[in-house]
Simulated scan of single mutants.
Amino acid sequence: MTELPFVMSPGQTEDAAVQLEHDIIGIVREEIGMHEQMATVFAQALVRGLRRRLGGQEIYIPAASKGERDAAIRRDFNGANIEHLMRRHGLSRTRIYEILAPASRTRAR
């Protein structure tokens, strides 16, 4: 059994559970458009179940494919929504333009 390099206090543990709940609520609302009240009930049940079954374990969650993200940025770009894309994907203006550049070179041919 692998030990974590630190021990969380009970308060930190509860803070982490609340943050996980908040993240799940946001994901469920963004991904499937669930109403906030229902998303909250869903998130609370999911966090309770995860804590019971996997509490204390480290879990690896693979990052989303950058290719899928880049394709979504190219698809969603309308010429006037750079700020929105930056916020949505957590990227800099420069990085958004770098992602868009190959698409604009392909269209120019």
Rank of each mutant, 00 (worst) to 15 (best):
E68F: 03
L20W: 03
P62G: 12
G55P: 06
F77A: 10
T13V: 09
A16P: 05
L50D: 04
M1S: 13
M34H: 02
Q44D: 06
R52L: 10
E14R: 08
Q57T: 12
R107Y: 03
I25Y: 08
G90R: 13
R74S: 02
T2M: 10
E98V: 07
R53N: 15
I82M: 13
V47A: 09
P62R: 10
E3I: 05
I24R: 05
L85Q: 04
D23M: 11
A71F: 07
T106N: 09
L91S: 00
A45M: 09
V41G: 02
R29G: 09
E98W: 03
E21S: 14
Q57I: 00
E68D: 10
R88L: 10
E68A: 05
L100K: 03
E36V: 15
E68P: 00
G49S: 14
R52E: 15
L91E: 02
E3W: 01
I96R: 01
E58Y: 01
P62C: 12
E98C: 06
T2W: 04
D70K: 03
F42E: 14
E31M: 13
S65G: 05
A17W: 05
R93V: 09
Q19I: 00
G79S: 14
P62M: 10
L20S: 09
S9L: 12
L20A: 15
P10Y: 07
S92E: 01
G79M: 13
L50M: 15
R95L: 08
F42G: 01
